[in-house]
Design a protein around this nucleic acid. Structure first.
Lengths: 338, 338
DNA sequence: CTGAAAGCGCTAACAG
DNA sequence: CTGTTAGCGCTTTCAG
């Protein structure tokens, strides 16, 4: 394996000169630079980023802590899209990504700070963190630049990107209200997810503004899972048959609700309107196709990486990016005829 | 940032001893070990893997070159599933993953070897490589341990994992033959993909064994894209209306074929049977649901990582792993009535 | 059982 | 414009 030392020897110069030439410093004569460049190519030289990172104390590497990189999460492509977005941006700005092992319990014993420091990543992006995650406190206390996806922390070196979840939820519920629904239930994710709280806020506010008082009993949690969504919907609809519409905090759960409704013999959208959230791929293929709130997950990842790198390179203070959402009307919602 | 030097100072021992204690060597007195361990915890020590990697010449890191980490590939979750599988296994065996930037053209200028050597990865996993990819030759020549997914190279330090594509294709075509079809066309991916070639082999062999001579004109390429699949299917069916069944080398293309058939007014499966390949999520949701060949993509990734790590740790020679496939009959195939 | 010393490959003052 | 020197944090002979 060629090192700068080898090049130096071959060129008859010092390693310093080689280093400077290779890194494009101006204070090297054109002649030596050329000689060194050629030699480097000839000897098939690749710089050792470990050595460089060791002395420079940075690695051009971003650490990724993504929660959903597992078999179960293939159904919505949310994790994948976030990853794609991050990858695209990192690629453009010439950073590499390291995927941390946070799956195994063994690894989970390592703290966030340990993970990042061991690998000497320049910064980190975290997705899928819950409000009770022990990493959370660490992120705030740590001096490692970090961007959170869908979790609202901001500090000296922590920024975050998210979508306007409250407004998104309002759009969904307003759509139902405009269709004449008044008995609108909500299947939420879980109380530990920031987005759940915001979507609930939007739900509540939309009802309020329409002069509809909301019922606590009509709000249930489906843990963002399809099956749980189905079960909760069935329970809900059996107990309160007067419900004519359900707002679901995720498409996956909405898919479950669709199934639940079918089991109960309630036709969607004739007897029940359903609005989802996310606009996952399946939303367009379900039966009926799902009306939902679309968010650009790819962009979420892209912006997260962009923000982090800007922070790392000192061109930007940590801050917050909020992306928009869009109501996509398909066939799971209809006028209320009751 | 605490280093072993700090610990050494605090403990009143040499750095050597600290290093040995921390790494579980036996030749350290229980007393000193304990003292050092406590100090390490107290001072919040994390080892610097860069420094360690530099001297040990390995990094407990696997480099990933995956082709489909981009916006377009979200529709089949193949890339994602591979990634999940790799991640799961790496997690269990305590390796970290680095995602290389192979998207941008800038980065593409770096050779495979450069990429791996710069980051000093212990080995690499490559997915989605084409037969004309310049990386291919490098992989063979390089001394970096590598596992290829779905590409059949084997050498001193190159292994690969794949599924039995030929047999899979045969299962698909045999299914059609058993349903009474004789005029079976094939929409393949592209000639640069190894799996395409194998699936074609399976197609040909199945026909041959059934005593059906195959027609070259009935084999077209849809580049593994939905839209192209649709276009090709339309052209094919218009020109050769006698075709009663199509075997598609991917589900995504099969989805396109379904659409194409609809545009031509040919009902699936009554007027046309379609078999896909992959069993992607959407296959179960299309209209009609797709009969297809299921392969366990997650397992493909998992086994790739497992094989590589075993190779790295010297417990296994590089070799080949071939996974099975399964015919999944849904509603896009039916008896031929002509 | 422990320490001194060398060195992994690279960059960065500093001095010429 | 170039070289000398030191050192990043760690592991590893080699001697005690």
């Amino acid at each position: 394996m060629t090192t700068i030392k080898d090049i130096a020897k071959a060129a008859g110069v010092s390693v310093t000169t080689v280093s400077r030439a290779l890194n494009g410093y101006s204070d090297v004569s054109e002649k030596t630079r050329l000689k060194i460049m050629n030699l480097a190519k000839e000897l098939n030289y690749s710089p050792n980023t470990l050595a460089r990172g060791l002395v420079m104390n940075k690695s051009k590497t971003i650490g990724l802590l993504v929660s959903g990189l597992n078999r179960e999460s293939a159904k919505d492509q949310i994790t994948f899209s976030v990853l794609s977005g991050i990858n695209e941006c990192a690629s453009e700005l010439d950073y590499d990504l390291v995927l941390f092992n946070t799956n195994s319990t063994k690894q989970r014993e390592k703290t966030y700070t340990q993970l990042c420091r061991e690998r000497r990543v320049d910064g980190a992006i975290i997705q899928g963190i819950k409000t009770d995650d022990p990493y959370l406190q660490e992120v705030v206390n740590s001096d490692i630049p970090c961007v959170l996806i869908d979790y609202p922390i901001q500090s000296e070196n922590v920024g975050h990107v998210t979508t306007d979840n409250k407004l998104g939820a309002k759009k969904a519920v307003n759509h139902l209200i405009e269709l004449g629904h008044r008995n609108i239930a909500m299947v939420n994710g879980h109380s530990k997810a920031f987005v759940s709280n915001m979507r609930f806020e939007g739900y509540r506010e939309a009802l309020q503004e329409a002069g509809i008082s909301y019922k606590k009993e009509w709000i249930v949690n489906g843990r963002f899972e399809e099956e749980a969504g189905k079960l909760q919907a069935i329970k809900l609809l059996e107990k309160y048959p007067e419900i004519t519409a359900i707002f679901s905090a995720s498409d996956l759960m909405a898919l479950g609700i669709l199934e639940g409704a079918k089991e109960l013999g309630r036709k969607v959208p004739e007897d029940l309107s359903v609005v989802g959230y996310d606009d996952i791929l399946l939303a367009g293929y379900s039966n009926p196709p799902l009306t939902t709130i679309s968010q650009n997950i790819f962009q979420l990842g892209y912006q997260a990486a962009n923000l982090l790198i800007k922070m790392l390179e000192g061109t930007l203070e940590p801050h917050v990016i909020t992306l928009g959402t869009k109501l996509v009307v398909r066939e799971s919602t209809a006028k209320n005829h009751k």
